[in-house]
Nucleic acid binder design. Structure first.
Lengths: 299, 299
DNA sequence: GCCCGGTGATAGGAAAATCGTATCACCATG
DNA sequence: CATGGTGATACGATTTTCCTATCACCGGGC
């Protein structure tokens, strides 16, 4: 990747938003001619014209329009990093806040909450659905006290207790020929478009899935990326691809989707309960213990 | 924003992933000393030490760990822009970004996508799960082209086409005595703790539910608020309360939860397809038309 | 038709950023 | 003690980015 292009994409966005090279330059704190030069360099590097220039200013070409949403997300990611860095520099809760990934929401969490509630009926329990990476971050910042997420090791100050191993299963459109089989050889997915979650959302899921495909001799080709496990299932139901998902998702019975186990028993990183050791308190300890006990009972 | 920092964040990520300045430099196609310099400039600019240096290489500090997920998202955004630019250059693809609320994810969206795909197999469809308020924002900013959300009227520049009416149903723990009934009088919920979504997430759902309870002579007491429909169901399954949810959620068939219709037919704001009239394009028009046609067929 | 003003593009040079090679400082290991 | 591996420092070269000044083009008004 040519990293010098990254900044230029944000310049492109400024011009689109201002619709005018001069005003965009002012906003970026520079003069107009070098901004023109940067946009032209970007266009040359991509081999695509991104802006139509008129006397009334500039507006995106069709190609520019297609790129725009992704460029916006890049800008927002950069702003998010910047904002987070500011907060980290400054360094700073109640009740028990639990974060939980989608696939643990209906399988792992309810029995834990039921048991905890028997012991501590007066504690307020708040639950948020979060993906693994957001859950880790929320633990660090003290926004949640406990997380149920797909993690395999401690990372100071986050401590974990593994609750279960997990397996990957195939989610298919129920009209798919492969759905007629009881089990599916992972190699059969070689040329199939895969609906995947980005690595950032759940690194363990992503790495486990990539590793399993590689062992079978191919690199998974992401046909689509989506931002949630539910969206993954929706695209499968829409016929846009198949997905390797955790077995926890098979507890849902969404119409249009068939779940099939893999012929190869592909272990995935299971759900663990996690907490921030710097913010450990009796409630945390109790919930963690309950989660462990239940995991042992369930084998 | 200091745009020169963006590239350096991606350098930081490479060092973390390699755990070694030398190997990270090789991966980035540069030599080690300037990489060291770039990281130090980044640390100085942020006023935060991001990496501990040891003889065995480098690993992130606590602060570095906190920033890491956001930096990963930045890197992936950049890769996504690059990948999309490549596709745009080849002129092969059009991209349509769709946002969809959870309850429409498996009921409304798949048939629309299936139909559209028959007409335009070369169009790339990207789907994101968003709640109603986020979907409106994303439409305004042009991050998505189409949204399926719970809306009842236009709000310039957002235009909508209603697709369906909807009804509220009761979600109960399946062991609940009330689950034995075929239909439930809403008044029976008067003293039951309700698991609710905040108004901000879906104003239409909230207002419809509050209105129905008031007609029955009581104000709903939110025992719990959660951030997603999935978390709502998880708390019901955990025995922490009951919920009034849209009938679309019953399609998930989650374990531990029973869905029962209300005795009173309580209409709720249904799912509508929405688009930004300032960014209207042929693809939007086609998808909106397909969604309408399907809604009419389904009655 | 002519003039004017607004827009982005071009030109040339200066400044800043980024880079490379060479070397250093430190530390663990044998 | 010698060696090797790591990141840091030093210095100079190269590349990138920037600025001011000016140009080319075009539409609108008179």
């Amino acid at each position: 990747m040519d990293r010098n292009l990254i900044k230029r994409f944000t310049h492109f966005l400024a011009v689109v938003e201002e619709g005018h090279f001069g005003r965009a330059a002012a906003r970026l704190g520079m003069s107009q001619p070098p901004l023109t030069a940067q946009i032209q360099m970007l266009e040359r590097a991509l081999g695509v014209k991104l802006l139509e220039r008129t006397r009334q200013g500039a507006r995106p070409t069709w190609e520019g329009e297609v790129l725009l949403p992704a460029v916006r997300r890049l800008e927002e990611s950069a702003l998010a990093v910047e904002a987070l860095a500011r907060e980290v520099k400054l360094g700073r809760r109640e009740l028990v806040n639990i974060g939980c990934i989608t696939s643990a929401m209906l399988k792992t969490l309810p029995p834990v909450i039921r048991a905890y509630r028997k012991q501590r009926p007066e504690t307020v329990i708040a639950v948020r659905e979060l993906d693994t990476s957001d859950a880790i971050e929320a633990l660090r910042r003290g926004e949640i006290d406990i997380a149920f997420a797909r993690l395999e090791r401690d990372r100071f100050p986050i401590r974990i207790a593994p609750l279960a191993t997990d397996r990957l299963v195939v989610a298919l459109p129920d009209s798919d020929p492969l759905a007629a089989e009881d089990q599916i050889d992972i190699a059969a997915l070689q040329d199939r478009p895969l609906v995947m979650l980005p690595r950032a959302i759940s690194p363990a899921y992503f790495d486990g899935m990539v590793a399993a495909c590689r062992v079978a001799g191919f690199a998974p080709v992401p046909a689509r990326e989506v931002n949630s496990a539910m969206a993954q299932l929706a695209l499968v139901a829409s016929g846009l691809g198949v997905a390797l998902v955790s077995s926890g998702m098979a507890m849902l019975a969404p119409p249009g989707v068939a779940f099939r186990p893999l012929l190869q028993r592909v272990e995935a990183v299971g759900v663990a309960v996690a907490w921030n050791s710097e913010r450990e308190n009796p409630i945390c300890r109790e919930i963690v213990q309950i989660a462990r006990d239940i995991a042992v009972e369930q084998g």
